[in-house]
């Protein structure tokens, strides 16, 4: 052990001589500190963030609505999924000031559930932590069919404005606004920017022009819930067989 130590020491001094002779030396030592809160912390910074923290907590704890039953997600269709996709369609129409034919929510983007009882802003942040924006695209019926097939392959996503069946991982019997899907008709489709940019293997949507007003889906959910509360309604939805398995 001691001999090893001296070998290293010798090696080191040999190196230093070479280094100094070469006259181009910077020795670098490194430390990666874990930033721990065990010890004393800086009170100036604590004081700086306190008013913001108080306000953030106040905001997160603010009750914006009430849920009678608690809503959870399921495939091919669920109460929570219908609630969220109906919200997207309604709020997109409000925000963009035009009719929206179909709205989709990617199933994997739903990160929590809506529990029974009082619903706080913080709960909606947990449900939708991503800063996904609602965007509109004008899609041909042909592209819509491709997108629905992808969705069918993944056992169905929350959707509003459309009903269909899934058979052999394909979308069949598709009705939009109670009319059969027409490959030659252009539909106004709401999605999150994540999906519209081709995320989650939805490459068929990539490159198609988007209408974007910087409107967060999370903001839409909160505004929708507050609208319901204003009307004296609780957060609720039901399944209505918009997506069914045909086999």
């Amino acid at each position: 052990m001691l001999r090893k130590y001296f070998t290293y020491l010798l090696l080191f001094f040999a190196l230093m001589i070479v280094a100094v002779a070469k006259a181009q030396t910077a020795i670098v030592e490194f430390t990666d500190y874990k930033v721990e809160n065990k010890l004393k912390v800086d009170t100036t910074l604590l004081n700086l963030i306190k008013p913001y923290a108080d306000s953030v907590n106040k905001t997160m704890n603010r009750v914006i609505g009430f849920s009678l039953n608690g809503l959870t997600k399921r495939q091919p269709e669920s109460v929570l999924g219908n609630f969220m996709s109906d919200c997207m369609k309604t709020m997109a129409e409000k925000k963009f000031g035009r009719k929206v034919d179909i709205a989709f929510v990617n199933y994997g983007g739903i990160r929590y559930y809506i529990p029974k009882g009082e619903i706080t802003v913080g709960k909606i942040f947990e449900l939708m932590p991503f800063d996904n924006l609602i965007v509109l695209q004008e899609l041909s019926g042909k592209i819509v069919q491709q997108f629905l097939d992808k969705m069918a392959e993944r056992d169905g996503w929350p959707v509003s404005g459309l009903r269909m069946a899934i058979k052999n991982k394909k979308a069949i019997n598709v009705f939009i606004d109670d009319k059969p899907l027409d490959e030659n008709v252009t539909y106004i489709v709401a999605n999150t920017d994540y999906i519209a940019n081709g995320g989650d293997d939805c490459g068929m949507l990539r490159g198609i022009e988007q209408i974007n007003k910087g409107y967060l889906f999370r903001e839409a959910l909160m505004e929708y819930i507050m609208l319901l509360s204003k009307q004296g309604k609780s957060i609720d939805s039901k399944t209505d067989n918009r997506i069914v398995y045909a086999n």
Partner: peptide
């Protein structure tokens, strides 16, 4: 954290970081 120790490099130029 990176601690650099610089050595003199020649007569004109004092420091140059060739890192070890």
């Amino acid at each position: 954290r990176l601690d650099y120790s610089f050595a003199r490099t020649g007569k004109k130029k004092f420091f140059e970081a060739h890192s070890f």
